[in-house]
Design a protein around this nucleic acid. Sequence first.
RNA 1: GGGCCUGUAGCUCAGGUGGUUAGAGCGCUACACUGAUAAUGUAGAGGUCCGUGGUUCGAGUCCACGCAGGCCCA
Length: 1124
Amino acid sequence: MKKYQEYKQVNYPEIGESILSYWKENEIFEKSITNREGAETFTFFEGPPSANGTPGIHHVMARTLKDIFCRYKTLKGFQVKRKGGWDTHGLPVELQVEKELGITKEDIGKKISVEEYNKRCKETVMRFKDEWDDLTEKIGYWVDLDDPYITFDSKYIETLWSLLKRLYEKDLLYKGYTIQPYSPAAGTGLSSHELNQPGTYKDVKDTSITAQFKLKDQENTYILAWTTTPWTLPSNSALAIGEKLDYVKVRTYNPYTFDPEFVILAKARMGAYFNKKAADLKVDDYQPGDKLIPYQIVEEFKGKNMLGWEYDQLFPIEGLALAHPAFTVISGDYVTTEDGTGIVHLAKAFGADDFRTLVQNNVPGVFVKDEKENDIPVVDKQGKFLPVVGEYLAAKMQEHGINAHKAFGVDDFYVKNYTEDDENQADYKNTDIIISIILKNENKAFKVEKYEHSYPHCWRTDKPVLYYPLESWFIKTTAYKDRLVELNKTINWKPEATGTGRFGNWLENLVDWNLSRSRFWGTPLPIWRTKDGSEEKCIGSIAELEAEIQKSINAGFMTSSPYEGKELDLHRPYVDDVILVSSDGKEMYRESDLIDVWFDSGAMPYAQWHYPFENEDIFKANYPADYIAEGVDQTRGWFFTLHAIAVMLFDSVAFKNVVANGLVLDQNGNKMSKRLGNAIDPFKTLKEYGPDALRWYMLSNANPWDNLKFSLDGVAEVQRRFFGTLQNTYNFFALYANLDHFVYSEGKVIPVSERAELDQWIVSKLQSLILEVEESMDNYDATKATRAIMNFTVDQLSNWYVRLARKRFWRGEMSADKQAAYETLYECLSTLSQLMSSFAPFYTDWLYQNLTQALDKKEESVHLTDWKEADQSLINSDLETSMGLAQTISSLVHSLRKKEKLKVRQPLQRILIPILSETTRKQIEHVEELIKSEVNIKEVEYIDDASGILVKEVKPNLPVLGKKLGPKMRFVVAAIKSWGQEEIAEIERNGSIEVDADGEKISISVDEVLISSQDIPGWSVASDQSITVALDVTLTDELKQEGIARDLVNRIQNLRKEMGLEVQDKIVIEVKTDQELVEAAILNFGDYIQTETQANSLSGSKELSEGTALDLDDFDVLVQVKKD
RNA sequence: GGGCCUGUAGCUCAGGUGGUUAGAGCGCUACACUGAUAAUGUAGAGGUCCGUGGUUCGAGUCCACGCAGGCCCA
């Protein structure tokens, strides 16, 4: 009965499948959690995916990354609960449903009821859940799929409401304005999605003005700013510059009034405002009316220097005056020199950038008060100036004698073309033109021209869009900005730059969180208001809602609860049917907004447990998260909303460690897309390569935070090179262990100190590996860990240990040495199965089963084991250095043999190694036997000072000398390079030597130089950084004979194999040769040949007629091999 | 336009705190091994470290400005 299953071939996808069903049958995942009951918790939060599309290969990356640290921490003894989750609300679902139903947003509530529509959304959003679950299982991502949190669930929404209410009570939830695209013709806001419809952007010709803003307290000096929306100029409250841009002050004349003046603009924009032909004209020679206007730069400065400059309000309209810092120069990060003057006019009400920049600089905007004392812009929702501006413009028209196609009353100043006036009639003037003329007349315009540009239009009315302040609900994140920044610094970001840069900078420039969405499928905002806005209620729970409904029924506003006798659903439209009653008995209606879906996911730490309504203990034990991971594109999404809610409501971080992974691109570095056909199907890949190689490839190929250029060849390589090698190593072990009936028995093993040096070495390496993997994983660096494991497995274990130890497994009966070799190899394999199990969960469990099937004491799965700590007493760095030397020396000898065309089978007498220190000598002596057998030589000779043939070389120790000498370095370096053997001997003898450095005497000590051995004169040598090896290439007859004997063994082994003999079969050999050297070889090395080939007899014969002719380089031999 | 990331061999990637001859794997070439065998080993060839300038005795590494690609945001 074989104790260790042997495999001719392994099928990795099959291993994946069989282990998966083993896990399911035996509930291994569940046990990995229940096993750790009472242990310290390690908390992981699942960022919820949306299941309304099929999963891609990049999800394998993200989910693997999530999985590995949870598995690792479980092995380490933590209890790691991980609840799955689904993101179910939001625009993508709605758009998909609209598309499938062939409707638009307008139709919802008309062609289809909101109830029906939301039902469709709910169905659609989980459409691909099965596929997702399938992938999750197949790639071995352990997460609780049976009891996930779902964001549309009523309990989930109830938690959101309670959080919103807490924000509301802390005065952090408010109704404000945000600048949004708005269609005055349709009277409605437009979403960015509506703006992205084809045909929305059209090329139009608008009147553009470069206005002159007069600097305060400076005569005739103006800042120039350009706009394509002159009607926003009365609302100007600041000017923005780019701090790094170059600006000039130019002496010139106004082209309309011919007044002499100084204007300020970006240097790079001068070409657009001044005629080059006028460059040589004298400014003083100008006569009013001259076509060419001369100009002269009188000053140059950076934008930064302009910050804080004050200027006079362009339209000094009574009632629109503003306090400082209005009408000053501020910094705008988006200012460019691509068009205009490099100076941007800002109107708070009519541009999102303007609004943000002004708010950040605490500059007030131009508004008037309505009857409720609210700020409203000077353009109304029909797109028409309020009378306060209208009066001013009308008066100015009179003053300047401006005639138009019609008489303008105070209420006739529409901005854009929202009137139906015929633009072709005589004297047609729109508001922009009227403003232009006024400014020209008042020396406030430097240039007025028609400008063609692309501008968005309302898809329904075809009229231009207005950027306009619309009401929205906000979370006042800015109130907590400092705390958000501060707590972010305690989070361990991988990579760090995402935390300090991308996320940190974003926090530094924080604006309030716009929570409102005008859609249907999402979490409703739980705020009810009276019609006049005098009273508000924020509902924080279902119980509270029901109580309020009861009050409302009592007040007669509702006849019954819409939830009576129905399953509770907090979505629209049901929640919209709830009318509440105010304290003074007025009707209250719900604010129609839904909330941003990012609030849904950012609230998952609380909502997944229905906290605070339930599970307080679970919540408290699992908050904040120790670890989360998502794509770097979530920085301003999930990462931010988690952080914001945690800081604002719990004064805590939501997560302590976060890995932000990059994108998965195709192998050429292009984004994968189904449309381009370069997307990789994860299911197909899994079927072909199995989950382990795929996971391993993704983790080891590049750091997860770098983009991954995904290549199937790369997966294949990992499978072949790494898993293949490991599997070969296991097969080797199993083959011989079964032959020798070896079974590993813990507690009865030979102590490592009593095992062979080679064993001690690999065990030492293994302990070092455990430490390295631990350190990397504790630092959330999986790539480092996987690479270390690969290096150990392939280079150390397989290519060195197994190769050198092979013979110990082969022959003879079981011995202590053999036992030690088995135990050592077994320990390496079983330790690897655990070390690797986080990354390659299927294969390692399979390996673990194979290794432990003969044991009495074992776990059901490698994933249920306890982490085997490194035994640091077994780390022998001296031995590791020795073995390193052995590897280097062997490699050098191999390269010498190649150069001399002497194959390894030909034994050679000796190698010479120059030795500079006793330590090195001892380290090499330690592994001398190993070197000798590895490169097939008889002796190692050491050459030291006493030998008299050692030639040394000296180099400056630059890092040491550099600090001491600085600029004098080059003299000293030159001096040291000129040294011969005498100087080297002197510094070794005296410990120091004096050097002339450009006339100065400098003492150089022996530790400031590096002495190494050089060529041995007359020998063939090879050297590495620190070691030189010479090879004695003399071939004696005896060496030649031994070479022949080895050749013969080699050929006979081949014959045995051709004959199909088993390892243990015995043979008889007859050899015919007329070469003396061959005969001598058979005579002198007959025993060796027989032992090696398992021959019972070996005889030389002159008569042999049949047999195989062998070509031994220099000789021909006839050999006959028979089974005995 | 802004923030952040990346750029090293044909390909995928390593290269604390600046230091002498810039490394690994794959691929390629040659050889070896043939009792791990549809495996394995060894050696070799292969580099403008994206560019330009700067700091320094010394720069792949630090600084500035660019170029190319990417992500997020405008």
